[in-house]
Amino acid sequence: LVRYRTISKIPQITLNFVDLKGDPFLASPTSDREIIAPKIKERTHNVTEKVTQVLSLGADVLPEYKLQAPRIHRWTILHYSPFKAVWDWLILLLVIYTAVFTPYSAAFLLKETEEGPPATECGYACQPLAVVDLIVDIMFIVDILINFRTTYVNANEEVVSHPGRIAVHYFKGWFLIDMVAAIPFDLLIFGSGSEELIGLLKTARLLRLVRVARKLDRYSEYGAAVLFLLMCTFALIAHWLACIWYAIGNMEQPHMDSRIGWLHNLGDQIGKPYNSSGLGGPSIKDKYVTALYFTFSSLTSVGFGNVSPNTNSEKIFSICVMLIGSLMYASIFGNVSAIIQRLYSGTARYHTQMLRVREFIRFHQIPNPLRQRLEEYFQHAWSYTNGIDMNAVLKGFPECLQADICLHLNRSLLQHCKPFRGATKGCLRALAMKFKTTHAPPGDTLVHAGDLLTALYFISRGSIEILRGDVVVAILGKNDIFGEPLNLYARPGKSNGDVRALTYCDLHKIHR
């Protein structure tokens, strides 16, 4: 019993810090008490220290592992850092350059016999395009090294910054494609005289377009951006097909006994025919423009016929181009109408809503002055909100995010209106959640004399007048207030005048 009563005193000691020596009952000389009392004092002292730490809000209350900052290894790049964003855009520009100039170089340097010394005699450094290609190869190699040090988000939505895990993730992902696209074939085969082989191998750079397509997928929600990307894709495919079309004609031209190829026909049409040795002929500019003209006309199913396939190889390629053109029509131009419709969806919704308003007016036989006010209010409210119901949009977000959005939407009023000066951010967040926005066209009466005042109004834009009878008592403008002081009276009061809008007004109100 003594032991039980001794232990039962522990909660009292913990909360009230009572010393055991003052209790005459606990001072009985028993061996059990002498053993338990020192333990009680020690526990009391420890609990006292913990309570003191909690009340003082000291940093040592938290466990040590929670006080440590997340460790980022040296030379690790955050995937959302500004440097990584700028670097990704730079790589994107280099990939676009590669997609345009690599097929052009591979096709127009394929057994090209233009006048001038061969590239091997001039030297590697004197070729501007080769120098640019070398810079692109170096940048792609540097990009691989950067990807080995860039964080990523795993399946659990955690940012991984450990170098080993980053390397394994990159090896399992895009490393092989990036490595093949970054191989400097110019340096590996330079001086061997195989410019045709170098041009063909350099087309491996186009593998990076797969990554670019995935990154550009984030802009699919913007109709104008999608339309622009589709047109660029169409032009890029036409450019690639033009390079292939020229390569076919250029390879067949020296081996044909009869002059029936499209390059021969082009030379005869523009007065620059090929001679018996295969030299001469149109310039590279004429060849490229004509090839691009043929691919565009074939892809769009126009086909004027002034550039036509004559050999079997050219006919087979033309059939493939027609098939590609039909697929592009289905996948690209078939979506253009939907994209344009999405661009004008706001206008369509406006006309639909206006039609419903006019049908309501016609069905209920609203008189002319009231009908005009109804239409003007709808037009003004639509121009202010673009038909978007803010309350319906915010309803799907958590309250903390709703408060931040409301604070942002009402920031101008909260910053410049005098009653809100000096208020804490928590108070402003709470008030912003209570605001209701209303609009009024010129001549609209917001409050009639004798109406119950259940709200306090803040003028965000425009001006109003307060009338008693036919006498203008006051004219209020931006950041002015009218209405009933909230919670100042037990019952809502009545208006002693009319409140009429002089201009288009936007008002925020808080109800009782």
Rank of each mutant, 00 (worst) to 15 (best):
Y97P: 01
P398C: 03
Y124S: 03
V226A: 14
T233V: 12
W245H: 01
N310W: 01
L207S: 13
A119K: 15
Y65H: 07
L241I: 01
F175S: 01
F296H: 01
V357N: 03
S283I: 01
T120G: 10
L263N: 01
K172M: 06
S194G: 15
R373T: 10
F363Q: 10
I388H: 10
V160F: 01
I284A: 03
C122I: 01
W262C: 01
D178I: 01
E314N: 01
L129K: 06
K272H: 01
F171L: 13
I166F: 01
I183V: 10
Q372D: 15
T113W: 11
L92S: 04
A247V: 14
N156F: 09
E158W: 01
C126G: 01
I340W: 09
G261A: 01
Y246H: 01
S194P: 14
Y222F: 15
S276L: 04
A181S: 11
P442S: 05
N410Q: 12
G164I: 14
Y170G: 01
K66T: 05
L206M: 08
Y170I: 01
T311W: 01
A449G: 06
E112Y: 15
Q402S: 02
L401Q: 01
A440E: 04
D143L: 01
Y170N: 01
L129I: 03
V159A: 01
V302G: 01
N250R: 14
Y329C: 14
L207I: 14
T76M: 08
I177S: 04
K272N: 01
D444L: 07
I366Q: 01
F83L: 09
M256L: 15
P273Q: 01
L110R: 15
S220Q: 13
G305T: 01
Y274H: 01
V132D: 01
Q269D: 01
I324N: 01
W382H: 04
N368L: 08
I146L: 07
A242R: 01
S337Q: 08
Y80W: 04
A381Y: 15
Q372K: 07
R349Y: 12
K215H: 01
N275M: 04
I144M: 14
E375R: 05
K202F: 01
K66F: 12
V86S: 04
F171P: 01
A99K: 01
I146F: 05
L201V: 05
A69V: 06
L355E: 11
G305L: 01
G422W: 01
H169W: 04
T352A: 09
S277F: 04
W245F: 01
C406S: 08
L134S: 06
I237D: 01
T347W: 14
F304I: 03
R429G: 03
F171Y: 04
I332V: 10
E64S: 06
D186C: 11
A449S: 14
T203E: 01
L145H: 01
F140H: 01
L279W: 07
F363S: 03
G422F: 15
